[in-house]
Design a protein around this nucleic acid. Structure first.
Lengths: 341, 341
DNA sequence: CTGAAAGCGCTTACAG
DNA sequence: CTGAAAGCGCTTACAG
């Protein structure tokens, strides 16, 4: 807000590792007890006389006092730090989600600590242990948990919100989008444009509602589903799927891609093989990141309301209302050049 | 490592917000003082008899004890959390840097807390205040600081490493790449391919050595510098620069782009205007993220040794050797399709 | 409205 | 090799 710390008096030698200003220093300067400093700074649990209050505030300003959040957290049993678990920060979707959650958290005076769970594929169990060791106010997990991981997370005594989820998760507050509906909308868009053989590119065969949405939309239109390519969500996965689609000889003229990260690389593979987008293959992706608009051709996509979802997740933590339930957000179709729409 | 917490005995009612297991519980069960538990767990400052040690370890295992890092941090005066300040997580460069730093930190048993400073453009002073309030072990800043911000950060009593820096920073340990040399190499590559009029796309006119590297390489070859387009580093900036380059009528046949995020969008703008890459305009970018390889056409680029830089930054924090100096890492040219090389 | 004091869960100098 | 005790910097029930 105002330049806290700006007026910190410069200390002679400058190099001496000056002791941090503590609440006691403030109390001494203001001529009150340290309890009163807390009352003023927290506005709780007691009212403070206006004059006293002002003395404290002046002392805080003069000393450039910064409350030690660690001590506060230890005393309170919780910090003002929210943990966010994402699998891979390089995925534009998670990057954008992290940014929105950071914004929402900041608006609530909270700080976000991002933990990358990518590493767990290399052995560790998402360092959940680490999560429980930090005195976090709450945890937002944008990842799929194994049964064992769910169990461990459930045993944590802090509010937990799962985001980017397909379904309700037993025992958790879950937030997701209507993956089935979004996919259906995307594919319906392609069908409306006249496509009759539409491929699917995504991950995890068998559990992703986006694949069902694709299949349903196709069948509801009386068509045969085109080929489905199941690849990892990393860029390389999308690239391989694009190459496979290029090699497909079944007359595919359009594809629905379950994530923009995969779509980015698939776009590259298809163009490398000489396919024109959308002329030879029309594409609609899924997620709605900023990046989609700046690819060539710009990606048509079904977009998640990330801001609203992030606000919701943070609110559930801050208000401690992360009880078991599932909130599904609607998606919206964004038509750009890649679908030829 | 091993399944800590796995053997935590299930508590009857399950719903009771069971009190966390503390060091005292462990001490009681092991029949030792709580000090000894610390000695065992930290291996310091005292040796412990093997038998005693085993009793403690057994108790820890049985109770599923997780040390409270907040209490530890308060007692020690520092945590095992390293703060990382980046401007925008959506920028592939920062995403990749964050991932590498996270990996390096994890290897040292540290956790990374990512802070987005993007918000500061909206008013706040990068919540440096927030930084000093958390009891961080150290701070890695991948951003350019204003004079006032530098002053504030300098006053923090924790090790600070600036990364992704153009130059040495008074009073700080700084890590960067040879921006001038990298740019020079990129442009030299284009010159070697026969280009005679080469444009520059980047940000911040006047202070970026990449622009000087471009200009020098061009002049050293006896050529006239092509037009320079200065735009923000966000995607929209790159897009606008691409459009401007497309409108340029001065016979440009190649461009050096100072970041891959800008290059991604510039590629889109140029192709939107019907330019073939590299046929009409050849492009070399700067950064070396994974993403560059999966764009169409794949981006030729000069790459930063991100892993090494991240390891270095983390090491400087962990070993508390972040004294004033500047380390410059060499870059390497990665030739892909966009330069036609 | 204000303050003395206990407590959060660790670490470590000091004494045995 | 082991333990009693003080201390890190806050918060807050309790007493005045």
């Amino acid at each position: 807000m105002s330049g806290a710390g700006m007026s910190e008096p410069s200390v002679g030698g400058a190099e001496a590792p000056r002791r941090r200003v503590t609440r006691d220093d403030v109390a001494r300067l203001a001529g009150v007890s340290s309890a009163v400093v807390s009352y003023v700074l927290n506005g709780t649990p007691k009212p403070v006389a206006a004059a006293t209050r002002q003395k404290v505030l002046d002392a805080v300003e003069l000393l450039g006092y910064q409350p030690n959040q660690t001590a506060r957290a230890l005393s309170l049993g919780r910090s003002n730090v929210i943990g966010l678990v994402i699998s891979d920060p390089r995925n534009p979707y998670f990057a954008e989600l992290a940014l929105e959650i950071d914004n929402a958290a900041r608006a609530e005076g909270r700080t976000v600590m991002v933990l990358n769970s990518l590493a767990r594929r290399g052995g560790g169990s998402m360092h959940i242990a680490g999560l429980s060791q930090q005195q976090l106010e709450g945890i937002i997990i944008a990842d799929t948990l194994s049964e064992a991981e769910s169990e461990t997370v459930r045993s944590l005594s802090v509010p937990v919100v799962l985001i980017n989820q397909f379904f309700a998760n037993k025992g958790f507050a879950s937030i997701g989008v209507d993956h089935f509906g979004g996919a259906y909308m995307a594919v319906r868009h392609l069908i409306d444009l006249g496509h009759r053989r539409i491929a699917f590119i995504g991950g995890n065969p068998g559990i992703d509602p986006r694949e069902e949405g694709w299949a349903s939309a196709v069948r509801d239109a009386g068509l045969e589903p085109g080929p489905a390519f199941h690849v990892p969500f990393e860029l390389e996965g999308g690239y391989q799927a694009g190459l496979a689609l290029a090699d497909d000889a079944s007359g595919v003229t359009a594809a629905f891609v379950a994530s923009e990260q995969q779509a980015l690389a698939a776009l590259s593979a298809l163009q490398e093989r000489g396919f024109a987008i959308p002329g030879d293959i029309a594409i609609v992706a899924f997620d709605g990141t900023t990046c989609a608009a700046y690819l060539w051709p710009p990606l048509s996509t079904v977009a998640q309301p990330l801001r609203a979802m992030a606000d919701d997740a943070v609110r559930r933590i801050v208000t401690n209302t992360a009880h078991e339930d599932y909130t599904s957000y609607p998606m919206s179709l964004v038509v750009r050049a890649s679908s030829g729409g």
